[in-house]
Nucleic acid binder design. Structure first.
Length: 125
RNA sequence: GGAGUGGAUCAGGUGAUCGCCGGCAGGAGCAACCUGUCGGAGGAAAGUCCGAACUCCAGAGGGCAGGGUGCUGGGUAACACCCAGUGGGGGUGACCCUAAGGAAAGUGCCACAGAAACCAUACCGCCAGGCGUUCAGCCGAGUUCUCGGUUGAGUGCCUGGUAAGGGUGAAAUGGUGAGGUAAGAGCUCACCGGUGGGCCGGGUGACCGGUUCAUCGGGCAAACCCCACCCGGAGCAAGACCAAAUAGGAGGGUUGCGUGGCCCGCGCAGAAUCCCUCGGGUAGGUCGCUUGAGGAAGCCGGUAACGGUUUUCCCCAGAUGGAUGAUUACCACCCUGAUGAAGGGAACAGAAUUCGGCUUAUGAUCCACUCCUUUU
RNA sequence: UGGGGGAUCGUCUAGUGGCAGGACGACGGGUUCUGGCCCCGUUAACCGAGGUUCGAAUCCUCGUCCCCCAG
């Protein structure tokens, strides 16, 4: 079983990686977040979190980022194929907990995998 | 029991599992990775309101402009901060607040109202005199109707005296009482109040107390200003170094730049293969970067702020799309509940070059004190 | 992180110590067969809290929010 770590190379740090869009991107909406899966050439997935100042103060923004980072760390092995994942916090009030975030993250991964499978079955012919 | 004032302290704790950042050591060496070990948010880290250190501009030098501070004495690297006091104001009180120099250096403003808003004095009014006039009484002359004189009351104008009173206004030329006067007035007197000067005593000083003489016309300087003291500018995206990238594009120049308030001064470059500006390109890394006006404890000086000194004492975050987290167990606190079971809650808030302050946000506990009410 | 600027009716704006004004809008009325244009009237604001002053949108202090700039 692979260890559930989260190294620096698994984080999206370039502004261009946040902004660039591609037709193959898969966008999944959950109640509080918008999750964008971008196909990656790297053999592992990466995570980037967007929380603007309009969501709350610095404590709140740090909380959102830490909770989402933890959900990614625990479940990154399920993202197949590997992708750059960008999570955008919507305008929803209330302090997030880890369990809520993980549930949203898992549903997003599930829908992402579903779209990939249908594409794989449709396109080969 | 209620209301309140001042001060101090803490900012849940201990494990388990999985993670993140940094230092050190090791894996032969840089990077990466692994192992071990140590450390890892705050009282406000916040607002960026002051003051400094540090870096660059020249080792920041002179003048002007501009800005800041503004009772006294201390503290400090420095401050607009702190401590101790003085004066003034608020509160029944504990206690709190205080940008608190100068208005006879000058300028300006004080809307509306009001006679008048600061400098001459003056409008209404009051009083005296003069000239008219109306009415009444008395006297004289005369033919009844009239004329003259005089007294009193009223009224108009002029001259003079006066500032007691006058709707106003935020503010009106010391207040009250008596004398005095034609009417009045600090004109005089008694008490009270203010201002200025002299002298005496206390205090380092702001100032306080007493006495005596003179005098009694506002306010605003967080209006311009004057006086005293202080301040050069920019800011770690400061600044230094390494590497990568494009093509030699456009404009200007004798003085240009540093210079980002102005002038002087200073420094650098200075006839082109030169300099400046714009445009274009690059957007990576290393250092600065955490040991410092540092902390703790003891002793000494000081009312205190604070300072001095001693120690084999301690090292206490340094990220760079930005770490300091997640899950879970038990205990502690608060609330609901019945004391149990159970459930819920736990504020304000996240380092970014570093310090000293201020201000703002905010949970809990403790100590001392004040006022009111009730009981004894 | 550092530096700079701003906040006035619903919107855009003027006002630098003394009544807060204008335009557009909204509402009501008039005009018209009806609507528009036009005319008349009404409504409606000084970001918040303290201080200076007789008096503050204006001067001072603190706070809240918004915008801009950077090597």
């Amino acid at each position: 079983m692979p260890r559930e770590t989260f190294k620096k190379r698994e984080r999206i740090t370039k502004r261009a990686d946040f902004i660039r869009r591609h037709p193959d991107d898969t966008v999944v909406h959950t109640r509080a977040y918008r999750v964008i899966f971008k196909p990656s050439t790297l053999p592992y997935s990466r995570l980037g979190v967007v929380v603007t100042r309009k969501n709350g103060n610095a404590v709140f923004r740090n909380r959102v980022k830490r909770v989402l980072r933890e959900a990614f760390r625990k479940n990154k092995a399920r993202i197949q194929p590997p992708a750059d994942v960008i999570v955008i916090r919507g305008k929803l009030s209330g302090v997030p907990t880890f369990h809520e975030a993980e549930e949203s993250f898992l549903t997003a991964i599930h829908r992402y995998a579903a779209t990939k499978n249908t594409k794989d079955t449709d396109t080969p012919a």
